[in-house]
Design a protein around this nucleic acid. Structure first.
Length: 311
RNA sequence: GGUGGGGUGGGUGAGUGGUUAAUACCAGCAGACUGUAAAUCUGCCGCCUUGACUGGCUACGCAGGUUCGAAUCCUGCCCCCACCA
């Protein structure tokens, strides 16, 4: 429970009063989701549930644009700094933890750019309750892809999986092996959570400018040292946690493979691509998302929409 | 001034007579998504045309030439790089 709750709960509608709907803020990277969420939280006495696959890792703060200590002191944040960079954390953990958080927060604001996670939380996503099988994975990893396809076809002739996508093929084999049932039947569909979803967006060229500027700021804020200390702690760049934009590039710079400028440049370009791909989860023509131009008074607009929704 | 190397589609850069609108990568655009999701994978990507299979046009520094046919061979010119003077 937030420290501010007592003071303002009389004024702020609870989740139940909003028809039990959870506020969700989505949008591409660097569009301003976090800032908007923090401002919104301050005004409605809300608490933030992060749906960001990079913010769950400890020691990775600058490059993931993790909310700062000050921000976290002002507004409670959930699902941040949960695991060390060499630990497993994936959508299943997220669903478990996010649901647990939602269950004990009165006015949750889910904020995140990880489309798959948000979709899963809202009930659109699916996930089989089969954990990773490291031994099997490493065995399949080195198999020629045709053999991998053949293996899945023998286990489950009807499985529909992208035949080019090794990772998906492996996952399907893993699931079918564990359950002994067709892949399609292993779908676990979580019950949908009622939500009001706000999307923040910007024209592409402006968004790219903001992405670029943000990476410049991150470097100025000591991002290179952050990566250096991660490596020094023994967190190698091959870790999934290190797949966050820029970490491997900066690691390559630290080992002399790239100049800092080259590393930064590549990171920016990957950032553009990432932003683009986020629109595949949050589509501008999705009628369930209330899109707002990030240049506008988005928090006012959100509050107005929520007020309207109450009546 | 001389010698050698080179000028290819937004960028880098393959290609050395036909199967080449032209490999690949990047950028850009669109899409997929059952425990790595900031991951992984797919499609498009000269111009015009067709709903589509298609059809047409223009292209590999510039200008000529050889050839049935040239980005690829020859000649001249322009520009760039390296070395020599």
């Amino acid at each position: 429970m937030s420290p501010a709750t007592t003071a303002s709960s009389a004024l702020a509608p609870t989740l139940a009063e909003w028809g039990g709907r959870i506020v969700v803020i989505v949008g591409p990277t660097a569009v301003g989701k976090s800032a908007a969420a923090i401002e919104l939280a301050g005004r409605i006495d809300g608490e933030i549930v992060s749906a960001d696959s990079r913010c769950v890792y400890r020691y990775m703060d600058i490059g993931t644009a993790k909310p700062t200590a000050e921000e976290r002191a002002r507004v409670p944040h959930y699902l941040v700094d949960l695991v060390d960079p060499d630990e497993d954390y994936s959508v299943a953990h997220f669903l478990r933890d996010a649901r647990a958080a939602l269950a004990r927060i009165e006015r949750p604001i889910v904020v995140g750019g990880t489309g798959y996670w948000v979709a899963a939380l809202l009930g659109k996503g699916v996930s089989a309750s089969v954990g990773p099988n490291a031994a099997l994975r490493s065995e399949l990893e080195v198999l020629p892809i045709e053999e991998l396809r053949g293996r899945l076809a023998r286990l489950d002739p009807g499985a529909r999986v992208d035949p080019h996508n090794r990772r998906r093929l492996i996952r399907a084999v893993e699931v079918v092996t564990a359950t002994g049932r067709p892949f399609a039947e292993s779908t676990a569909r979580p019950e949908p959570l009622p939500a009001v979803v706000f999307g923040l967006t910007l024209p592409r060229d402006l968004l790219y400018q903001r992405i670029d500027a943000r990476y410049d700021q991150m470097v100025a804020a000591g991002w290179v040292d952050e990566v250096r200390s991660l490596l020094a702690r023994g967190y190698g760049r091959e870790l999934p946690a290190m797949s966050g934009l820029g970490y491997r590039e900066i690691a390559a710079h630290l080992s002399g493979e790239l100049t800092l400028d080259e590393a930064l440049h590549r990171t920016k370009l990957r950032g553009h691509r990432y932003a683009r791909s986020q629109y595949n989860w949050f589509k501008l023509d999705d009628p369930t998302i209330r899109w707002l131009d990030a240049r506008g008074p988005v928090v006012d607009q959100m509050i107005a929409a929520l007020e309207r929704g109450r009546r």
